[in-house]
Design a protein around this nucleic acid. Structure first.
Lengths: 184, 184
DNA sequence: AAGGCTACTTACCGGCCGTCAAGTTAATAA
DNA sequence: TTATTAACTTGACGGCCGGTAAGTAGCCTT
């Protein structure tokens, strides 16, 4: 049982790493297995299919967003709430593992377009964006709040020049996002 | 000769469409050819390889960015210049075809990571970002100007709710970007 | 009318893909 | 000691992939 959980986790970790390195389609199960020192068929003991590995990777992230949504829906629709939404999203994001998962879904969304978790993810993100502005907000305001959440999102794996720490990145992203969701 | 140019263009158009719909790796040359009513081998008369089709798609975009770079390097490094860079980038972007090309490279950047044009594109983009802030700018400022250019970029194909026109999207993106590159 | 070029088609190639059925090994439970 | 189960391996499957060699119909030139 310990073994099972261990290997499952190792498969997830290696798969995510390779998916981010070479892309989802370009990464074969053979490579994943080889990297782990097992055979391809061993993966099928732990997962039903390649897609199933993806689904398992999505779980944590979808849970994160859902949790923010659940919280936010019990709050008054104020600027403070919107800022807190952004802050929480940002906090959940800035661990290496979560960032890697987000990057994977972001960078492979076309390849994964038929995958149910990708649709679910976009759905949740749009729900979240909807809470970042008044229901009757102007189009410009609505685009702005989208960009606010997206700024946090994007800053986490911007192809930036060197010499910038994660902390500085996060600080800048939050500053930008706060401003973008604070308009009346 | 007319025929050749026509078919070449049609291949590019169909390929781009399918790449954006299903992803680069998931789109086979057979499908592209079928959609055009020709055989797979016909594509090899017009292009040397699948990669070569991608390269041909990149040309226009790389030229666009290079042109902005060339112009900007002859200008004084003022806030007005930075705003004009953003404006020009935005203008070049908001045609259906250019947006499709950009989306393709954005959404398939992992799958295309070994493709020379992708590296070139990132290089040019980083050069462009470097012109959006003072050389000695603080990390936060630097991230901000990255996000400025990225906002324009992102707004062009944000998974937004309906009822927002391209014009409103563009307006909002520009407004956000202007603010982000205007800091001293 | 002969030769050559353009724009294809037909037919094939080796190779890797995801997937699966069946066998194996080691540990644990009765 | 025997039976069962977990965690694999071996070996194979059909299928689609990008790519190519060779042929060909139609046009243009000479």
């Amino acid at each position: 049982m310990r073994d099972q959980a261990d290997t499952r986790t190792r498969i997830q970790r290696v798969a995510l790493e390779l998916f981010n390195e070479k892309g989802y389609e370009a990464t074969s199960l053979r490579e994943i297995a080889e990297e782990l020192g097992v055979t391809k068929a061993a993966l099928y003991y732990h997962f039903r299919s390649k897609d199933d590995i993806v689904a398992s990777l999505a779980e944590g992230r979808l849970g994160d967003i859902q949790r923010i949504l659940d919280w936010a829906r019990g709050q008054p629709q104020t600027v403070e709430t919107r800022r807190e939404i952004v802050r929480r999203y940002c906090d959940d994001l800035y661990s290496a593992h979560r960032t890697a998962i987000m990057r994977f879904f972001e960078r492979n969304q076309t390849a994964l377009r038929d995958h149910p978790t990708v649709g679910k993810n976009r759905e949740l993100m749009m729900d979240l964006v909807a809470l970042l502005h008044a229901p009757d907000a102007s189009p410009v305001t609505r685009v702005k709040s989208s960009l606010g959440l997206f700024a946090v999102h994007a800053a986490a794996f911007l192809p930036m020049s060197e010499g910038i720490t994660d902390e500085e990145r996060k600080e800048a992203a939050l500053e930008v996002a706060f401003e973008l969701v604070s308009s009346e």
